[in-house]
């Protein structure tokens, strides 16, 4: 089943006087349950691509379809709904709401979805235990290490059972050991819950974790291969 479908996607940014073509005719398709890395040097367009797939930004031309919904005809609030229910995000840094505890950060998404309190509490506990944060429910982000913060972010991204999780360089601010730990958790979630993961990186070690590797360079798709390990 197709989870993500990009057809001839173009995106140009205005940077002062010059136009920056961040994405040029990018087409790709990703099926349910994949664990995909988007790799490329800094400035190649990874963040732009993930933002477009997540409906955070709109394309200049081309089409994006996520889980059967084409973004073409969707309004801002429909997009927000889609993000809330179908897409989870993990960002590079400053991911969490600093005034909320780990548990509250995770719970927040379910609050937006309007789930009852009892169910929220059960799921928060279960998911935080899953990512290895037992007993740290009430810590504020400032009281957690970088790796722990990113694990909370992963927990927040998957707690609402999304179809797809988009992670923009989730390990960039972590040392390699912690980064590995985070990837293992992501992979576990991918296998156990059959959630599609797309993450970007420019780190060789991280790319090794992916089952499929999409390479972009200067906004163009340069390579797309499935590894057979």
């Amino acid at each position: 089943m197709r989870m993500v479908e990009c057809i001839k996607v173009n995106k140009t940014y205005q940077q002062g006087q010059v136009n920056v073509r961040a994405l040029k005719d990018v087409s790709l398709s990703i099926v349910t349950g994949e664990f995909v890395a988007i790799a490329g040097p800094s400035g190649s367009g990874k963040t732009t691509l993930l933002n477009l797939i997540g409906g955070l930004d709109s394309v200049d031309s081309g089409t994006i379809v996520v889980d059967g919904h084409s973004f073409d005809q969707m309004s801002q609030s429909q997009l927000a709904d889609l993000r809330l229910n179908k897409v989870g995000f993990v960002f590079q840094a400053y991911n969490l709401i600093p005034v909320l505890s780990a548990a509250e950060n995770v719970e927040f998404v379910m609050l937006l979805q309007g789930l009852p309190a009892k169910e929220r509490r059960q799921r928060v506990k279960a998911i935080l235990d899953d990512v290895g944060l037992e007993g740290k429910y009430d810590r504020r982000p400032a009281e957690l290490s970088g790796g722990q913060q990113q694990r909370v972010a992963v927990a927040r991204a998957i707690v609402s059972n999304p179809s797809i999780v988009l992670a923009d360089e989730p390990t960039a601010n972590l040392d390699s050991k912690t980064g590995k730990g985070l990837l293992q958790i992501m992979k576990k979630m991918n296998e156990e819950k059959k959630i599609t993961f797309i993450f970007s990186t420019h780190d060789k070690m991280v790319m090794d974790y992916a089952r499929r590797l999409i390479l972009i360079r200067d906004g163009r798709l340069a390579d797309d291969r499935v590894k057979s390990n």
Binding site: G54, S77, A80, R83, L84, G88, F89, V109
Partner: peptide, 13 residues
């Protein structure tokens, strides 16, 4: 601002 960006990204109106 960043914080609000994150909040909106995860679906806050």
């Amino acid at each position: 601002t960043r914080e609000f960006g994150v909040l909106m990204a995860i679906g806050t109106a």
